[in-house]
C-alpha cells in the first residue's frame, strides 16, 4: 500500500468541497482498504465520512423510503420498514458477504463496491478498468466468474453487489452532494456499462458524495424473492442471482420486477422480461419465457457459459417463489447464511 493523507469530514458540505485530486471517501472500508493494501487503489487522500449525519432511515410522505448513505447493511436488512415493505432487499442484503462485513459495510459503500475480477485485483495483470488501455486478461483467461450481460471488448467484470440487485428490482433515486450543490440520479442510470471506458464505473463527479438512496414506493401486495446461486452456502459472491417481485390478481401477473446479479457488468434490471410477464398466467411457461427474454443478449466467453442456463434457473425459481409468496425453508436458511 501507499501512504495517504487521512482526514475526517465533519459535515457533508465539508466532505463534498474536498475537490483534491485522488480523493477517496471511506465509510466501512470493506472494499477500499482491501484494494489499497493490494496496491490496486492508490488514493492520495482518504476522507473518513463516518461522522456525517447520514445514518437515518425515513419513510417519506409519498411512500418512498429514504436511506442514509451510512446506514450499515446489517441495520438496513433488519430495519422494520425494509423487512415489511421491501423484503427482497432484506433478503439480498443478508445473502451478501458475512455478518462481520455487513456490520461494517454501508449502503452507499455497497453501491460503490468494486468488481471482484481477479485480474482487476492483481496489479501485475492487464486490466482496462484499473489501467485504461492496458488490455483485459480476463477476456481469454479464467473468466468463470465474469459477466454474460453488459460486457464489452474492453471489460467483462461483474458488479458483485447483492444489495444493488435488490434495489434494481425496487427502483430508487440516489442523492449526490457535490461542490455545486445537490442532484438526484436514477439508480438505473448510476452505474455505467463498461463500453470503451470501463474505468468510469458510475455517474459520480470528483468531489461528489452519495448522501442518500431513496427507494421507490413499495409494490403493494407483491410477493418477492431474492435467490442467490453460488458454489457454497455462504460468504461467496453470486454466480447468478435474481431479485423478483410479482403482484398477482388470482393467477394473472399484474406487475413484475426482475433484476439479475452475478451475471452482468452492472446491477441488471430486466425491463423487457417484466413487460412480457404482465398479463400472463404465473406459471412455468411464462417464467421460462421471461428468462429467455432477460438472457437473449447474453454472451459467453470460454469459462462462463454455464451462467446463462444458471441465470435462467435463478429467474424461473425466483419468480416461482415470488408467485407463491413463500419459499422452501432450505432456500430461506441458505439465503441468509
Amino acid at each position: 500500500m501507499r501512504t495517504f493523507a487521512y482526514s475526517r469530514a465533519d459535515s457533508v458540505d465539508h466532505a463534498a468541497h474536498r475537490t483534491m485530486p485522488d480523493t477517496a471517501f471511506v465509510a466501512g472500508g470493506t472494499t477500499l482498504l482491501d484494494l489499497i493494501k493490494l496496491d490496486v487503489l492508490k488514493p492520495e487522500n482518504v476522507v473518513d465520512i463516518n461522522a456525517l449525519p447520514l445514518k437515518r432511515v425515513e419513510r417519506l410522505n409519498d411512500g418512498r423510503l429514504k436511506i442514509g448513505a451510512l446506514v450499515t447493511n446489517t441495520d438496513l436488512a433488519h430495519h422494520p420498514e425494509v423487512k415489511s415493505h421491501y423484503p427482497v432487499l432484506s433478503e439480498a442484503l443478508l445473502a451478501g458477504a458475512s455478518t462481520q462485513l455487513r456490520n461494517m459495510a454501508t449502503t452507499a459503500g455497497n453501491v460503490m463496491q468494486r468488481t471482484r475480477c481477479p485480474y482487476y485485483r492483481d496489479p501485475a495483470a492487464k486490466c482496462n478498468r484499473r489501467e485504461p488501455g492496458s488490455g483485459c486478461d480476463a477476456m481469454d483467461g479464467i473468466n468463470r466468474m465474469h459477466a454474460v450481460l453488459g460486457g464489452s471488448d474492453a471489460c467483462i467484470a461483474v458488479h458483485p453487489s447483492d444489495m444493488c440487485v435488490g434495489i434494481a428490482a425496487i427502483g430508487a433515486t440516489l442523492t449526490l452532494q457535490g461542490p455545486d450543490g445537490e442532484r438526484e440520479v436514477d439508480f438505473a442510470d448510476f452505474h455505467r456499462l463498461p463500453g470503451d471506458t470501463p474505468h468510469i464505473e458510475h455517474d459520480l463527479a470528483d468531489g461528489e458524495l452519495i448522501t442518500a438512496i431513496t427507494l421507490d414506493a413499495p409494490l403493494e401486495n407483491a410477493g418477492s424473492h431474492y435467490l442467490k446461486l453460488r458454489d457454497r452456502a455462504s460468504y461467496e459472491f453470486a454466480l447468478a442471482s435474481c431479485a423478483a417481485q410479482l403482484v398477482l390478481d388470482g393467477d394473472t401477473i399484474r406487475e413484475a420486477r426482475l433484476a439479475l446479479g452475478g451475471v452482468a457488468t452492472k446491477p441488471w434490471r430486466c425491463s423487457d422480461a417484466e413487460a412480457a410477464l404482465v398479463g400472463q398466467t404465473a406459471d412455468k411457461t411464462s417464467f421460462e419465457r421471461a428468462a429467455d427474454i432477460a438472457l437473449k443478449d447474453a454472451q459467453a466467453r470460454e469459462h462462463n457459459g454455464y451462467k446463462i442456463p444458471l441465470a435462467r434457473q435463478a429467474i424461473v425459481r425466483a419468480l416461482r417463489n415470488a408467485a407463491r409468496g413463500d419459499k422452501p425453508a432450505s432456500e430461506t436458511q441458505e439465503s441468509q447464511a
Binding site: D122, G141, I142, A233, S234, Y235, E236
Partner: peptide
C-alpha cells in the same frame, strides 16, 4: 500458469453453513 485465486475469497472452502 499464474495462480489467479490465491486468496481466501476466490479459493473457496466450506463455511460453517456448508
Amino acid at each position: 500458469a499464474r495462480l489467479i485465486n490465491a486468496n481466501v475469497a476466490d479459493y473457496i472452502v466450506p463455511t460453517h453453513a456448508d
